[in-house]
């Protein structure tokens, strides 16, 4: 016999079940490769840019590189500034967005975004 108390219990269970069901559904695409560009926001030209086996010769200030493909993994990034400083970073290429941007910032730090 369905009482008012048992009705609320069943409602709570149903709501909780729907909640976990919807959370367990994975709408995020799993990607294995990404399209990457490099933007130079540094205050000098940077060259000898290397990430994995990809090599970009020179980027002027505010210049953006041609896109290239990177597999999902960690890479060592490095570039040489006009003042002969080597900027390096470990880049973790992953995530749900297909297009990624590596930025060389004004303070010498390197970030990955989309």
């Amino acid at each position: 016999m369905v009482t008012i108390r048992s009705f609320w219990i069943y409602t709570k269970v149903t709501v909780l079940g729907l909640f976990f069901y919807s959370c367990s559904n994975d709408d995020i695409k799993k990607l294995d490769s990404y399209t990457v560009i490099i933007k130079n926001h540094y205050f000098e030209t940077v060259d000898s840019i290397r990430i994995g086996s990809n090599f970009v010769s020179v980027l002027e200030i505010n210049e953006v590189s041609q896109p290239f493909i990177l597999e999902k993994q960690q890479y060592q990034f490095s570039c040489l500034t006009r003042s002969k400083l080597i900027l390096t970073a470990k880049i973790d290429v992953r995530g749900s967005k297909e297009n990624l941007i590596i930025e060389v910032l004004n303070n010498g730090k390197i970030t990955l975004g989309n």
Partner: peptide, 8 residues
């Protein structure tokens, strides 16, 4: 180690 650079 250089931790940050600045423009002139």
């Amino acid at each position: 180690k250089i931790v940050q650079t600045y423009p002139e």
